[in-house]
């Protein structure tokens, strides 16, 4: 078994796909139908090693919470911001490490987390 897809729902499909492909570096790899009459678009990022399943949903009530692991939070925060991603939380220190957060157009929350080991001897 392995984890393969993360579903995200959106009311504005076009805008959502543009955000993922132009700002986060995903590419469209195909479509799949899970539920009767609703097609999902599969997008993949080799860099993040993950596939998202973007589904049109007019009510748009389901939000995802996605945590992206990074080796250098400030660097990736800066790169994404330069690409035009708006961060709702700039990098701040948590017990787990350094983290920043942004929302996609549909309001799904992405956390950019650099885990740090504070118990190093």
């Amino acid at each position: 078994m392995k984890l393969k897809y993360i579903p995200v729902y959106t009311a504005d499909f076009e805008e959502q796909i543009n955000f993922y492909t132009q700002k986060l570096g995903f590419r469209i790899t195909g479509t799949m139908t899970f539920y009767e009459g609703r097609e999902s678009t599969v997008i993949r990022s080799d860099k993040l090693n993950v596939a998202l399943l973007v589904t049109n949903n007019d009510s748009n009530s389901d939000k995802s919470n996605i945590i992206i692991n990074t080796a250098d939070c400030l660097n990736d925060y800066h790169a994404l911001r330069t690409a035009g991603v708006f961060f709702c939380k700039s990098p701040a220190y948590l017990p787990a490490g350094l983290a920043a957060e942004f929302l996609d157009p549909a309001g799904n929350k992405f956390m950019l987390l650099e885990e740090r080991n504070y118990n190093e001897q």
Binding site: L74, N75, H78, Y93, L98, R116, Y118, E120
Partner: peptide, 24 residues
């Protein structure tokens, strides 16, 4: 130790690699 060490090491690594972006 801790965060300051992580941040200084990241910065030094970028500078050693020739990074020029002053904003970063």
């Amino acid at each position: 130790a801790g965060d300051i060490k992580y941040n200084v090491f990241h910065l030094k690594q970028h500078l050693d690699d020739g990074m020029q972006d002053e904003m970063l």
